[in-house]
């Protein structure tokens, strides 16, 4: 059973068609990678799945429920968690409070019920030392970690990660991959947009290529990466 299914989804910003008749589905428990050049419409696709923006046409189903017009908040309740490509922390809250608010509201539980879980996520994402620091004072690396940690705090069934590996050192990248793998091992479905291909392919089971808003390929990673048209799009970005 697919956990997520998009059918003929389109979105334009003015004249620019950023999502062009996109259809694909993700089976429950799978890790799907999304690649494509800058401006291909990858982040927009996430915004459509989470409800941060609404599509012009087509339908989106999450766990067999039509969520095409459902607001972002309710999609979070249903189990959609996301990170933002450009980190969007709650600046005046501490790192721990960023997770608390996500866990309490996303899961609709009390602070007592979620605080241990939040602390453990901080531990897992290596944010514990800055737990009591306001998010405004974080480095870019810490902000990216916070994006993932906060998404995890909502206890998602589907986790959307948008370019969280860029600019990491090798060691940091290994740690990140470990974290994502352990989340995946718990049965969480993952969709991961990433330019750092070796990190992506070490986790995902399937790869989707987006170009000018269109899906130009979806399938096993090595199969996709060997295709001539994909290699042309990715010329310069070495595999």
């Amino acid at each position: 059973m697919p956990i997520l299914e998009l059918k003929n989804v389109s979105k334009s910003f003015g004249q620019l068609k950023v999502t062009d008749d996109v259809s694909f589905s993700v089976p429950e428990g799978q890790a799907l990678g999304i690649i494509g050049p800058n401006g291909a419409g990858k982040s927009t696709l996430f915004n459509l799945i989470t409800g941060n923006i609404l599509s012009d046409a087509g339908s989106i189903a999450f766990q067999d429920r039509d969520v095409t017009r459902v607001p972002a908040m309710q999609r979070c309740f249903a189990g959609v968690g996301r990170s933002f490509q450009i980190p969007q922390p709650f600046d005046n809250l501490t790192v721990f409070e960023n997770l608390l608010v996500a866990a309490m509201h996303g899961r609709n539980q009390s602070q007592k019920e979620v605080q241990q879980a939040c602390a453990q996520i901080l531990e897992q994402t290596e944010l514990l030392p800055v737990a009591n620091k306001p998010a405004a004072g974080l480095s870019l690396l810490q902000r990216k970690r916070l994006e993932m940690a906060r998404a995890l705090a909502t206890d998602p069934k589907l986790l959307l990660l948008d370019e969280i590996a860029g600019g990491l050192t090798d060691a940091e990248c290994v740690a990140l991959i470990d974290t994502i793998k352990s989340v995946h091992a718990r049965g969480v479905t993952i969709i991961w947009i990433e330019h750092v291909l070796h990190a992506l392919t070490s986790v995902v089971e399937r790869l989707l290529v987006l170009d000018f808003g269109k899906v130009i390929g979806i399938g096993a990673p090595d199969e996709i990466m060997n295709r001539q048209d994909v290699r042309e799009i990715y010329l310069g970005i070495e595999v």
Binding site: F84, D91, E97, V101, A151
Partner: peptide, 24 residues
Amino acid sequence: SKPGLALSAVRDNPEAAKSVGVDA
């Protein structure tokens, strides 16, 4: 309280607040 935390989240970033289940 719980709504108080949500209030700060909405003030700081309404879009992100919605994405973590806050009823802005």
